[in-house]
Amino acid sequence: MTWLTFLIVSGIAVIFAGGLIFSRNAVHGAMCLVASFCAIATLFLLLSAEFIFVVQIAVYAGAIMVLFLFVMMLLNVQGQEGALAGRAPGQLLVALALGAALLGQAVWLVARGGEIISRPARIPAGFGSPEDIGTALFTRNLLPFEITSLVLLAAMAGAVVLARKAGLSPKPNGAPAGGKPE
């Protein structure tokens, strides 16, 4: 039963991931990615990782993808396929090399690392409720948690600097980016 659910849900995730890669339209791709994220969240649920399930939906599908959509619309000056479909020189070569590396890794893992995959997890079965995460996060793993706040702080500064670099942010009455004639 769980196997069947797993197969269906991961099938959905893979199909939408394929949709992301093959869709000509960036926004369609983004929507496929949202659907794929939701399917992956369901996979977490099958592992009884309830908290990660919610975080996957709220942060990845709900917050980060909204930013992606905004960026796409920001870059999408004219037409649907223009701005994002540019080609860098040697793009195909790099893509092929990276793809081969990924494939090799997967083959190695399946061929040699059978014991790595089938090794039982070091956490008890059923781990993953907010209580478990809270206890783990705020006792044993306190330092990484506090460091996270520094990472978020740096990201905040980065976001402001990036928006400023684009030439149009926090200054009041600043002209919008494109310098669009009004």
Partner: peptide
């Protein structure tokens, strides 16, 4: 048992 977070997650969608 994560009802509150579930609703917040859906409202972000």
């Amino acid at each position: 048992n994560i009802g509150i977070l579930y609703i917040l997650a859906l409202s972000s969608l």
